[in-house]
Computed example of a mutant assay.
Amino acid sequence: MMATGAIVVVNGLNPLSLLTLGIGGVLALASALPSGIAPKFNPKLSSKNETQDPPPVIDSEGVASRREALASPRASEIPTPGEFKIYRQAELNRTTASLLANGAILIAGEDGSGKSTLAIAVVEKLQADGFTVAFIEPATPKQMLLEIAHQFDITTEDLEGKSLTADKLKRAIAQFLEENTAFLILDDAHCCDAKFRMWLKQLRRSDAPMLLLATDPPRTDIFINIPRIELKPLPEYAIREIMVQAAAERAIALKPSELSKLQERAGGNPMLAARAVDEEYLGLDVESGDHRRYFDITPLILLAGIAFVIMRFIGLGTGDQALYIFGGIAAAIFLGLSRLLYNLPPEDRRIR
């Protein structure tokens, strides 16, 4: 009889009343639970907050404590100040393997993208394996030849004690590379004299292993003869680690929001990342960076062309002649523009 009465009472209530009764019953049961079995739940904590780094400890002078790095979950992955870390391991392995196979390779990328850092890592890896490496930078042709001869331990004087001419140095270096396993690495090769690059091309014909690093190299002489690796922007985590390391070297604390703002200015460029920290350290107000990390808008243009095609069909179906004509002209322009951008070389699609 009581069950029947309960059903009648429930049937007489509207859905809103039922919902109110249900919420009230849940709250009453939760308050009646003993303290020993109450669920341990803190509404102020979330999984995101639990994984965040603890706030930096700031001393009386406003300098961040070095202990904040130890408290971070990724502290073991972030290099300590002054520590060398390579973020392009795949490029390092590929370059080293090519050189060991008596090959030549060109590493291209924008200024500050990490070409020199990668070259230093290649030199250290080859020297650790017991190979002879000559790592040079742009200078006059004679100075570069003398530097190569010095690092290869090639004599630069004849039997009479006179300095060898440039042509004799070239022949001596070429003969040394033919008789020994040695590697030639040239940084900023695009700044070298054209005649010197032609000599490198002649060396390459005799299978002399070499690594060239250049910023936007022209498609001429030696640069068109050897395969290239285009360095892409570093991922966001790598740029953040570089910034954290640079900030630690300067004993400054950067909040996550400040790091995010600086990352936008870096654009995946490690040198610009370190420079952004320096600018923050000096208190400079810089709005944008010098990077060339831009998005390809060709898909957006293609979508706009498709939208105008749809607009043309709508005008055809509704009998709107103006909409039909406008949609056709706009679709032709946008689709033609997207095709033009698609056929351009990749570097021409960048905004300079």
Rank of each mutant, 00 (worst) to 15 (best):
M1I: 02
G5H: 06
L13P: 08
S17F: 11
I23M: 09
G24S: 04
L27E: 07
A30R: 11
S31E: 06
L33N: 01
I37M: 03
P39T: 03
N49I: 05
E50Q: 10
V57C: 04
E61Y: 07
E61V: 04
R66P: 04
A75H: 08
P79G: 08
E83D: 12
F84K: 14
Y87N: 03
Y87R: 03
N93L: 14
N93Y: 12
N93M: 12
T95H: 08
T95C: 12
A97S: 15
A97W: 08
A97V: 11
L100K: 15
L100W: 08
A101E: 14
A101Q: 15
A101I: 04
A104L: 06
I107S: 08
A108Q: 13
K115V: 02
L118C: 09
I120L: 12
A121S: 14
V123T: 10
A128C: 07
A128D: 15
G130S: 09
F131T: 05
F131S: 06
A134I: 00
A134K: 01
F135C: 00
I136F: 05
E137T: 13
P138K: 08
Q143C: 01
M144V: 04
L146H: 07
H150A: 06
F152K: 02
D153K: 14
I154M: 03
E157Q: 10
L159R: 14
D167H: 01
K168N: 07
K168I: 02
K168E: 13
R171K: 09
R171D: 11
L177D: 04
N180H: 15
L184T: 07
D187W: 00
D188P: 00
A194R: 09
F196E: 01
L200A: 08
K201Q: 13
Q202L: 13
L203W: 12
R205E: 14
S206F: 12
A208Q: 10
M210R: 00
L213R: 07
A214T: 10
P217L: 06
I222K: 02
I222G: 06
N225F: 01
R228I: 01
E241H: 13
V244S: 05
A246T: 14
A248T: 10
E249C: 02
R250H: 09
I252V: 11
L254H: 07
K255F: 06
P256L: 05
S257Q: 14
L262D: 06
G268S: 06
V277N: 02
V277L: 03
V277D: 06
E279Q: 12
Y281N: 10
G283I: 04
V286K: 12
V286Q: 04
H291E: 00
R293T: 13
G305Y: 09
F308R: 10
V309H: 11
R312S: 14
R312V: 02
G319V: 01
G319R: 03
A330Q: 15
A331K: 09
A331Y: 11
A332D: 11
A332G: 13
I333T: 13
L335K: 04
G336V: 11
R339H: 05
Y342F: 11
Y342M: 08
L344P: 11
E347Y: 10
R350L: 15
